[in-house]
Structure formats: structure tokens, C-alpha cells
Design a protein around this nucleic acid. Sequence first.
DNA 1: TATGAATGAGGATTCATTCAT
DNA 2: GATGAATGAATCCTCATTCAT
Lengths: 191, 191, 191, 191
Amino acid sequence: MINTTSKRAILLETSLELFVDQGIQKTSMALISEKSQVAVGTIYHHFKSKEELIEGVYLEILESLGKHIAFTHEEEQLDFKSRFDLLWRKGYDYYTQFPNRFRFHDTYSYSPLISNQLREYARGYYQVAFDLIQEGIREGMLINTNPVLIMRWLYNSLSTIIQIKLNHEFEVTEDMVSTTLEMAWKSLTYK
Amino acid sequence: MINTTSKRAILLETSLELFVDQGIQKTSMALISEKSQVAVGTIYHHFKSKEELIEGVYLEILESLGKHIAFTHEEEQLDFKSRFDLLWRKGYDYYTQFPNRFRFHDTYSYSPLISNQLREYARGYYQVAFDLIQEGIREGMLINTNPVLIMRWLYNSLSTIIQIKLNHEFEVTEDMVSTTLEMAWKSLTYK
Amino acid sequence: MINTTSKRAILLETSLELFVDQGIQKTSMALISEKSQVAVGTIYHHFKSKEELIEGVYLEILESLGKHIAFTHEEEQLDFKSRFDLLWRKGYDYYTQFPNRFRFHDTYSYSPLISNQLREYARGYYQVAFDLIQEGIREGMLINTNPVLIMRWLYNSLSTIIQIKLNHEFEVTEDMVSTTLEMAWKSLTYK
Amino acid sequence: MINTTSKRAILLETSLELFVDQGIQKTSMALISEKSQVAVGTIYHHFKSKEELIEGVYLEILESLGKHIAFTHEEEQLDFKSRFDLLWRKGYDYYTQFPNRFRFHDTYSYSPLISNQLREYARGYYQVAFDLIQEGIREGMLINTNPVLIMRWLYNSLSTIIQIKLNHEFEVTEDMVSTTLEMAWKSLTYK
DNA sequence: TATGAATGAGGATTCATTCAT
DNA sequence: GATGAATGAATCCTCATTCAT
């Protein structure tokens, strides 16, 4: 049983790497089999189809992200701005720690390979972010516009700095990261 | 001669549509041939390979964008904030007018299907934006951080609202658009 | 396991036949698949490419020839002329028994479809012949000229009579075969 | 008219070179067009099809060979052995002077790309050789075996030394050439 | 569960040939 | 005659998926 879990994990990890490096469609099941040292037939024991494997990768990323950004009981007690910063930083940490997960999410989350239904379902994993945004609006801390817009805006602010970091376009200093966070905050608050 | 030009244009347009609707890799040359009413062999007469066709689509979009966002001589005379707004609005107009071009750019510009070299080359088409950003920093109108970061930030601000509009997640009002623009401006200026 | 071996053999045999009958290039993989009752994909399971299949046919022929012409321990004891005749006869037998193998070798062994490297490698299979030639020269039984020249000369002597036999240009009698062998011997010896 | 002739000649020469270098089937009409600087359509003005172009190359070679090996009136007066040597030498000269013609003939004259009918027809070009052989048999200068066998034997003797020369397997000295000629003569005569 | 040989539809690309200019 | 854009059948090869072991 432990082995099974492990094979599934190996497959997800190998697939993620190949998907990101050469694109999902160029990555054949045979290649995944070879790189992961798992027979093709075995892959199909764990995932009914390539589509399900892709979905598996997607969900794994979001589930893991969800766990990473969840607030502890203590953190829940912090004031709004602190939680806002904390959430953003947690997202930044997560994607920085797992660059391939970021790349996958950034490239494929809006591609035709991920169904709307799945995207919808995955929203649950970052409900915490939505809740925070809605609280902010309700309490007058954030500007009163559509939460979906704010959600995307926040993701894009994260994405901006992480893309630069991963593409090595120039060195990203801690200063720059906090600048970016401040840009996000400033743009979402009144004056 | 007119026909030749026209065939190339038809191919680019049809390809763009199919690429965006079903993904580049799922779009076969045979399908492009069928939808565009141009024989497969003829496609290869105009584009050496599928790869070159993809690049053609990419460059066409950016070249056309470049023309659209260029400032007229009169516009050049406007003050910084006016030009900042104008550029953002032009980008918004362009992508709103050509939704498929936006979708293509947003989905594929950072995928492995577009080479770094090509991306580099295409940068020339939106040099205008870079110039404006650099002027803003120099003149103290924009915060003093890396222009590439600001460039991406601006693109992401545009992308945020356009994605929502195109995905019909909710109705996007003119009010919302100007709010987004203001968010971008506010985040990039001192106080 | 037996089936696997068998499929490879069937493919080599079918390919040989088609290559000889209609030319290598006119023989499509689809046709080989059809005639051999082996799916196209399966062919590629056994041979990475058409090129490798061609090489497989070539090597199979030479390897089998090599086994056929090898001297037994007893034969090794015979005098030079006997072994010379024996080798030539063995070659004649082999190619007469497997006409397609002769045709393939005769048509393609010096075509651009067989790489120099492969040709070089295959030389090992008829090292026996080279050894005999060198012994003959050393012992003064054969004229003292380059062994490669003699090797080719011998092959061409064989080829002459087999071509005629296979093309049915006229009936080839045992008398004619031994005449040809004597022509070869006479031309390679002093007086 | 002079230009026309010239284009035809250029096409034949270019085709020959490409056929020999990469194989007939791998040589596309487009490539011939490019290398010869003659538009594709123009090729089809001179040759109805690729097949006819191949035949053109084949016939050109044999016709030219025929002219080269023809005896002058004076040469006709020489004794048999002298004419035998002369003919062999002329063949050797011709193919040495035009290596590609040799390679083409050697590779393709017995391939399925040259029809039996054409081969038959081309025989006329080297009738001179047949005549000499038949005279030799009649006069008791050559062994009494089938002339076709002798014809092939002679061609193969030529081919042996030319192949070695062209493949640069080792340096071919004049000594070696005359040795080869002597081998051919010795093998075809009584004692 | 695990394996990997077998499958054949489908993909990108080539190419001999035609034809309007 | 000369040109080269246009054609679409045919080619080599890939690949998701199945299944007997």
C-alpha cells in the first residue's frame, strides 16, 4: 500500500516535470513510463487515462497549495493587513519552493486541457483567499469591487514577481518582493 | 499577388482561431487545411512547418498590437499620466477587439511552443511601453523599480480584466475597467 | 517469447521480399504491415525506424551468410585449392538457395541506403574469406595483389553467374558453374 | 534552341549528381529544380515525368559510353588481343573520367527503377563489346561459353577495380589496373 | 498489481504533377 | 518556353490505450 502511494506520487512528480519542460501534449505516456521507471500498463492502473493523469497533477498542486496557505489558529487572530501579507507571502513561498508547480499552474490552468468543471472544483482549495478578500471588502479595508477581480489581481501580482524570478530575467531581491506586495496592497486599498 | 497575401492571412486567421479553441497541439494541419479551404501542401508552401506557422501567428499578433498602441505625434505631446492611461486603454481596446489574439498571447506566450529567441525578438513591437515606463521612472512619476517588473505588472493588470470579460465570469462595466486602470496607476506611483 | 522472435523474423522476411521486388523506397511501412499481418505500430516496436529495418535485413543476410560459409573443423584440414573451391561453392549455394538475399545484397550493399559504418561492421561476417585470401597470397598460391581487390573479384565472379541464373537469361548448367569457378581460380593464380 | 539543349543537359547532369549522392527516390523534383536553377515547371517541359528523367539519365550515360568505346577504322585493324585490351581500357577510361556515371550505372542498372525494356534497348550501345566477344569465341581466342556470361564477367572485372578506385579503399596504381585486365584475359582464354 | 508487446487511427510532412500567368 | 504557387495522396512515424501473462 505504501508502494502504491509512492508510485502514484512518482508518476505525478515525473509527469509534472515533463509537462512543464516539453509541454503536456508532447509528453507521451511512454516517456513518462521511461523516466519514472514505471511500466506503461502500471500508469493505467493508477490513472484511467492521460486526461486523468493531467487532472491528477493539477489537483495535487492545488490541494498542496491549499494546505500550505491555510491559516493556523493563531494566525487567524492577526489583524487584516497582517493576514493579507501572510497569505501573499505563503503563496510566494509555495511557488518559489516548487517552481514546476508554478509553471504548470501558470501555463495550463486556463488552457483547454483543464476543464471548467475541474477549475471550479479546485476553487475550494483556495477558498481561504476568497474569504479573506470578502472580509476585507465587508470591513472596508479593500476597495469595493468584484472579489473575483481582486482574486485574479492578487494571483497576477504574485505571478509577476515569480515569473521574473524563475526566468532569471534579473535577480529578485527581498526588497523587490516586498515592493511587489506593497504594490498589490496599495492598489487594493483606499488611498 | 493579392491572392498570395490573402492566403497567408487566411491561414493565420484560421490557425489562430483553432489554436485558441482547441489548443495548438490538438489542432492538426489537416484541420487547418479544411477550415481555411487551403490544401495542406499549400500551407507548407507558406510556412515551412507547423512550428513556423505558430511563430507566424505569434508575430502577426504582436506586430499588429505594436501598430495599434503606437502614439500619434499629437499624443506624444500629452502629459505622462494621460499617456499612461492612453497606452493602457489602447492595449485594452486592442485585445477586446481581437479576443482570440488575447487568448493566444495569454495562453502561449510563455509556453515551450514559443522560443525564448522569438519572444526576445517580439519585444521590439512593444518598445513604446518600455520607453514610457522608463521615462516615468526617470521623471519620478513611477516608483523606482525594475522596468521589466513594471512591464509585466501592467500587462497583468490588463490581463486581469480582459480574462474576466472574455470568460464572462460577470459583466464588466466601464466603471470596472477604469477602476482596474486606477488600481494599476495607484500601485505604481508614490502615495 | 517465441512469438516475439517470430514477429521479428516475419518482418525481416517480408521486408526482404518487398524490398527486392519493388525497391526499398517504394516499399511503404504500411505495405510491410499489410503483407506481414503485423500492425504498423508493432513494426516500430521492433525497429526504431525504416532505416533500422533496412539495416536489420542487411545484417541478417550477412550474419546468416557468415554461418553458412564457415569451415567445419574437418574442412579446415583440406588443402588450399579445395578450400578455395569449397568457399566459392558455399557462397554459390547460399545465394542460390536464398535468391532474395542475393538480390538484396547485390542491389543495395553499395547504395546510399547502407551506411559505410554498417558495411564496415558487416565485414566481420565474411572474415573467413579474407583469411583464406591472405593465406593464399602468403603461401604463394594466389597472385600477390591487394586482398580487397581479390575479395571483390571473387564476389563478382559469384555474382556474375548467379545474376544470370536468377534473371533466367539462359539456363545455367552445373558445367557452367564449374566453368565460372575455374575462371575465377585461373585468373587469380600464376600460370 | 541552343538554350534548350543546354537546359536539358544541365538537368541531366544535376539529376545524375543528386541521384548518385542521395539515391533516386530521395531526390525530389523540387531539389533538382533548386540545384539546377531551373523552375519545376520547366523540368516538366523537358521530361514528361520523373520516370522519364531517370530514363534520360540512364540513356545519356549509355549513349555516351557507346560513343567512347567505338573503334576507329584504324583500331578495327588491330589483332584480337589488342582490341580486347583496348575495349577494356576504353571502358575503364570512360568510367574513371565520369565517376558519377559509373556509380549510377552500377547502382541502378539492375534496380526496379530501370525497366527491362529500357535495359534491352540500351544494349545496342555496347553492341561493339558483344561483337568482339562473339568474334573471340568463333576464332577460338576465348573460351566457349555463353557470350552473356562473358559480357557480364568483363563488366564485373571493370567494376571491381573502378569501385575500389572510387571508394578510395586504397590507392589504385596503373600496375593494379593492368593486373586486373590480365586477370580478366587469363580467365577467359585457354591456358 | 505489474508488465510491456501489440494495436491502428491520426499526425506532420513530402512530393510528383498541374496550370494559370 | 518558362515559371512557381497550388494540390492532395501518400509517407514515415507517434501515441493513447488495451490485454494476455
